[in-house]
Simulated scan of single mutants.
Amino acid sequence: MSARPGRWRRWRLVVAGVVVLTVTATVALVLAYPSVAATTCPRCYGLTPVRDGLYAEPDLPDADRQRLIEVYRDASQRVDDFYQGRESDPTVLACLTSRCYRRIGGGGERGIAIRDRALMLSPRGISAVIAAHELSHVELHARLGSRRDEVPQWFDEGLAVLVSDDRRYLAPPTAPDRCRDAASGPLPETLDAWLRAAGADEQVYARAACRVHRWVAAHGGRAAVLDLVDRLRRGERFDALVGD
């Protein structure tokens, strides 16, 4: 028993429509969010594997490839040490030229984390400190899961400074007080507010790092962060656990 010709024509039109919508949506995603598309398919943007999960421009000199591997290894170790292991396994896109970074959707930042799945490093961000900062964001988001939006941006950023041991914003661990800027007052809670504040005064990182460092030190060290994550995942509120 065969289907009617009209029915087949209708099905072909439906299938064609679905294909067109899918292609249109994909093109729109690539144009609107090239960083998401690039981290999903690094090869589509001309990047090649340097090692598992780490991509960069093709035909790099051996010295540059080794430098990337060492930066990634050092950054990963900093995050491993702080979190006592990692639950995240992000894709890392590293660009040694501005042209490459613009192509994958980067801007003027040194690096950027894409939620809990990837990060991108600009030519100015090829360092263990910057890579560890972004890996810290990814790790925290991965551990929090659906509760990641419960953590205000100032805590996320201050924690990333602490994990990466960024000496621009924190004194060395041997200092009597690691805080470089202990000014009080509210800190930005949303990403948009943080970006505006950091654009106007980069020392907002130092103030956030100081607040996080002092909270961590007063609550038992690194284990306090792991406990905080567990309690947040169980449904407790950040404000009740940390304050503002």
Rank of each mutant, 00 (worst) to 15 (best):
P188C: 02
P49E: 14
L226W: 02
S122R: 06
V27C: 03
H137I: 11
V225D: 12
A25G: 11
P176E: 13
H141V: 10
C44V: 03
I69L: 12
S98W: 15
G17P: 13
C179L: 00
H219R: 15
R168D: 08
T97K: 06
D149W: 04
E57H: 02
D177N: 13
R147E: 04
L170R: 02
S136V: 10
R115M: 10
S35V: 07
D227C: 04
S136W: 09
A197K: 04
A32F: 02
A3K: 14
L29T: 04
F82G: 13
L21M: 12
C210I: 05
C44P: 01
R12C: 02
S164K: 04
R178V: 05
L135E: 07
Q66V: 05
L21S: 09
V19A: 15
R196M: 04
H137E: 14
S2R: 15
L60F: 08
R7D: 13
H137R: 14
L121S: 06
Y33I: 00
G125H: 00
S164F: 05
G111R: 01
D230L: 01
P186E: 03
R78L: 14
T190W: 02
P61C: 10
G106M: 11
R148I: 05
T97V: 02
Y45A: 10
I114Y: 06
D201F: 05
G158R: 07
Y45E: 11
A217R: 14
V19G: 04
S35K: 03
R115W: 13
L195W: 05
L96I: 12
D62L: 01
C44H: 06
D59W: 05
Q203L: 14
G46R: 14
D81R: 10
T174N: 03
E189S: 10
Y45L: 09
R148F: 10
A209R: 12
A175F: 04
P61F: 06
Y45K: 10
Q153S: 12
R86K: 13
L232D: 01
S98F: 10
R102H: 05
R214I: 01
R10S: 12
V30W: 15
E189G: 14
E150F: 03
G111Y: 08
A182P: 14
L47H: 13
G235Y: 04
D80A: 09
P172I: 04
Y169P: 08
E70M: 09
D239P: 02
R67H: 12
D116G: 03
A32E: 08
L96T: 12
S136T: 15
I114E: 01
R12A: 15
A16H: 08
P58Y: 08
R12D: 01
T91G: 07
